[in-house]
Simulated scan of single mutants.
Amino acid sequence: MADLDTIDRKILKHLQRDASLSLETLGEEVGLSRNACWRRVKALEDSGVITGRVALVAPLAIDLGLMVFMQVRTNQHDPDWAVRFSQATRAIPGILSVYRMTGDLDYLIRARVADMADYDRLYQQLIKRLPLSDVSASFVMEEIKDGTALPV
């Protein structure tokens, strides 16, 4: 969807805060009827602007209180290795995000684990699946801001 109008932006703002809003409530918030609101939401989904709806879970509540950023360097830069890396990181449940980077760092991985022993299990799973030349990790001491809502 190339152009988002003011109502589309309001819908996105509200749904990013609470995707469980009923169509009635959402419509009231943005000034539309239930049906008109449903059509707008459906159009945002169909066009790929809304890619999904999720429930956010408190990491401590499920014993995943330690966030780790893994910095990965590799001397393999061929397409086959990249596909294998993508498949390996997608298959490990504790890995939340993977980014291919510019500069000295090849990849940055964000993961959630219970503790250091759990991190080591995740690390061992990763290195068993494919060769990496260097992996270092930084552990989050304090989460100052960790949001999901994009400014619309």
Rank of each mutant, 00 (worst) to 15 (best):
L150S: 06
L21Q: 00
L66A: 12
Q76D: 12
S33E: 11
V30G: 01
G65C: 04
S133N: 04
P79A: 13
P131T: 07
T74V: 12
A19N: 05
D134L: 15
G52F: 09
R112C: 04
A43S: 14
L64I: 07
V83S: 12
M141S: 15
T148I: 10
M67W: 10
A43H: 08
L108K: 05
V49E: 05
L26W: 07
A114D: 11
S33L: 06
Q125R: 14
G48F: 07
T148G: 03
A82T: 13
R53M: 10
T25G: 11
R9F: 03
H77T: 12
I109Q: 07
G52T: 02
L64F: 09
V152W: 01
R73H: 08
Q124K: 07
D134I: 14
V140I: 09
D134T: 15
M70L: 12
S20D: 10
W38S: 01
C37R: 01
K145A: 14
L32S: 09
A117G: 03
V30R: 08
M101N: 08
A117R: 06
L66I: 04
M101C: 13
A137V: 10
I11S: 03
A91R: 10
Y107L: 04
V72G: 00
A137I: 07
D104F: 07
M70G: 04
V98K: 00
S47M: 03
S138C: 06
P93V: 11
A117F: 02
C37S: 08
R40L: 01
A82W: 02
K128V: 12
K13G: 13
M1T: 04
R40C: 03
F69Q: 07
D78F: 08
V41K: 08
E29D: 11
R110E: 09
L122I: 08
L66Y: 11
S47Y: 01
V113R: 06
K42Q: 14
A114E: 07
Q87T: 00
I62V: 15
L96V: 14
R39D: 10
I50P: 00
A19M: 01
M141K: 13
M141F: 15
E29I: 03
L32G: 09
M70Y: 00
